[in-house]
Write a protein that binds this DNA or RNA. Structure first.
Length: 517
DNA sequence: AAGATATGTTCCC
DNA sequence: TGGGAACCCTATCT
């Protein structure tokens, strides 16, 4: 592994809840004893040996799901681009395609600026939410404001520029907050879709909330009748909030009148969850949906009824996210529980099969928020995507779960970002729409990542595969919360005492959204 | 410090 | 088609 230079600025960290210390690191001998038996054969082992996980040889590879080898020697583990086939050449049919020809065809020189990777923890709020974080959104106009939702339905507003300006609203939803979108006409208010079956509209300054829709007006009538909202997006041109439920139905709500328009439309297999909705950023008539029926589907908003989808993009398992590319809206990126990212290079081309399938570990785990690969909204080539990684890698003796940056045009791993202090999986990741900032949600905590010095990045990129660590050199063997609780000073910055995420008591202060730009 | 539990999807009967 | 066990590279609370 490349030796990294010592960080120059310490992150600013807020520890929200002063609970008992993390589980202590049990010795490797203890861990050896705890090896799990996953098949009946004696002599087979499965479990951690130190920071390395050993597979049971009877099981198919945990990463690519193909039998015949174990995860340790899976070719996809060595190189993410392994087995990724370049998209076949198509005839140009559309003026926009000319631009994409450059990105797709190998014989045309690519115009691809260097990727900027936010790889160093700048500040964090530890144990901010009371349950795991489920979604993140940057404020559209106030820089430095991050909105977060959690499994309990709570909504966090954090000004990470002023690290201690944060608040959590707890009375908006009663269970999982699945998706959030800002009101495009008033960026002080936010829509959220929850498993409690309601869409909320919240004033972020005051926390006052109204309900746009409630699918369970009569309360709990048993699991057969309880409807949960998952996918959500906003169509500004049509003045609609779009939401989808766990039974396969789409609902359209006019956000000017707050009235449901028309009846619910079955857009996925009846009884299956629709987890994602995305309106095309360029063509307002195009809608993309995905869900548990193993399909992502493209729809024409002008005529949307059961079975009227324009295309059905087949996957072998549940599709946990599907997004049009952020600038041209021409590409599609999906995340599926078969441990593959799929890319369609042009919605004007042949959609029968994806242009690329990239094997990547983002398996479903019932205890985690589902992973969703998201485009970098700032990348003009529309190829960089970010997604957290499920399986751990042994980094200097610590099992860490990095956040991966993947070039979806080649399948290559551009960067894996991790920090030795973050031992939990980071399934929720959001790239800032304007700044070179990554926000990640890991368990109950939030992290803000910024790029380290540019010169360092260039230097590291020359080493082909970048392995980036923040803060690690100082505290490699220390664990979170390990230190004595000797300070009331809860700000940790470049002039702070040390870099570790330290326990301290903090006060929650309200975050002002009247920004400062 | 070990054990319970929450939790979603798949698979099998 | 529906119910229940299996999954078993988690995190937290008791």
């Amino acid at each position: 592994m490349a030796q990294r230079s010592r960080r120059t600025a310490f992150p600013r960290v807020v520890i929200e809840r002063d609970t008992d210390t993390e589980e202590s690191s049990s010795s490797s001998e203890e861990k050896k004893k705890k090896k799990k038996k996953v098949c009946k054969n004696t002599g087979h082992e499965a479990g951690f040996r130190g920071a390395t996980y050993i597979d049971c040889p009877m099981k198919p590879c945990f990463l690519c799901k193909i039998p015949g080898h174990t995860t340790m020697n899976c070719p996809h583990r060595v190189a993410t681009e392994y087995g990724v086939i370049p998209a076949p050449h198509r005839n140009t049919r559309n003026s926009l395609d000319y631009i994409f020809e450059r990105q797709i065809r190998s014989d045309i020189p690519k115009i691809k600026p260097a990727f900027v990777i936010p790889d160093q923890v700048d500040c964090a709020v530890i144990r901010y939410h009371s349950r795991r974080v489920t979604c993140l959104e940057f404020h559209p106009t106030s820089n430095n404001v991050l909105i977060s939702g959690d499994k309990k339905g709570q909504l966090g507003v954090w000004d990470y520029g002023k690290v201690y300006e944060k608040t959590v609203y707890g009375n908006i939803h009663s269970c999982i907050l699945n998706n959030m979108r800002f009101n495009p006409r008033n960026d002080g208010t936010l829509y959220a879709a929850s498993s409690d079956g309601t869409i909320s509209c919240t004033d972020l300054e005051t926390g006052t909330s109204s309900s746009l829709m409630n699918l369970n007006p009569n309360g709990w009538q048993g699991p057969r009748n309880w409807r949960m909202l998952y996918g959500m997006d906003i169509n500004l041109e049509k003045g609609l909030v779009l939401v989808a439920d766990n039974f396969g139905f789409l609902y359209l709500v006019d956000f000017r009148s707050n009235h449901k328009t028309g009846e619910a439309i079955l857009i996925h297999k009846k009884g299956s969850k629709v987890v994602g909705l995305h309106c095309n950023p360029v063509q307002p008539d195009l809608l993309l949906s995905c869900g548990n029926d193993h399909f992502a589907r493209i729809w024409d908003m002008r005529r949307i009824e059961t079975g009227s989808s324009l295309y059905n993009l087949a996957h072998s398992r549940v599709v946990s996210s599907a997004y049009f590319s952020p600038q041209s809206g021409c590409k599609i990126l999906t995340t599926s529980l078969d441990n593959r990212l799929r890319v369609w290079d042009s919605i004007f081309g042949n959609l029968d099969s994806p242009s690329r399938e990239i094997v990547h570990s983002h398996d479903f785990n019932r205890y985690l928020t589902p992973f969703r690969a998201e485009w970098d909204p700032k990348d003009p080539s529309e190829s960089l995507a970010v997604i957290g990684r499920y399986i751990s890698e042994n980094y200097n003796g610590a099992a860490l779960h990095p956040i991966d940056f993947i070039d979806t045009s080649t399948g290559q791993l551009v960067a894996e970002v991790m920090d030795p202090n973050i031992t939990t999986i980071s399934p929720v990741n959001k790239l800032h729409p304007r700044d070179d900032i990554l926000a990640s949600g890991s368990s109950r905590s939030l992290f803000i990542w910024k790029p380290r010095e540019k010169s360092e990045i260039v230097q590291q990129r020359d080493e082909k595969k970048i392995v980036l660590c923040g803060m690690g050199e100082l505290k490699r063997n220390r664990k979170l919360g390990d230190e004595s609780d000797d300070s009331d000073d809860d700000t940790f910055c470049s002039k702070g005492k040390n870099s570790s995420f330290k326990k301290s008591k903090t006060k929650t202060t309200r975050c002002s959204l009247k920004a400062k730009r």
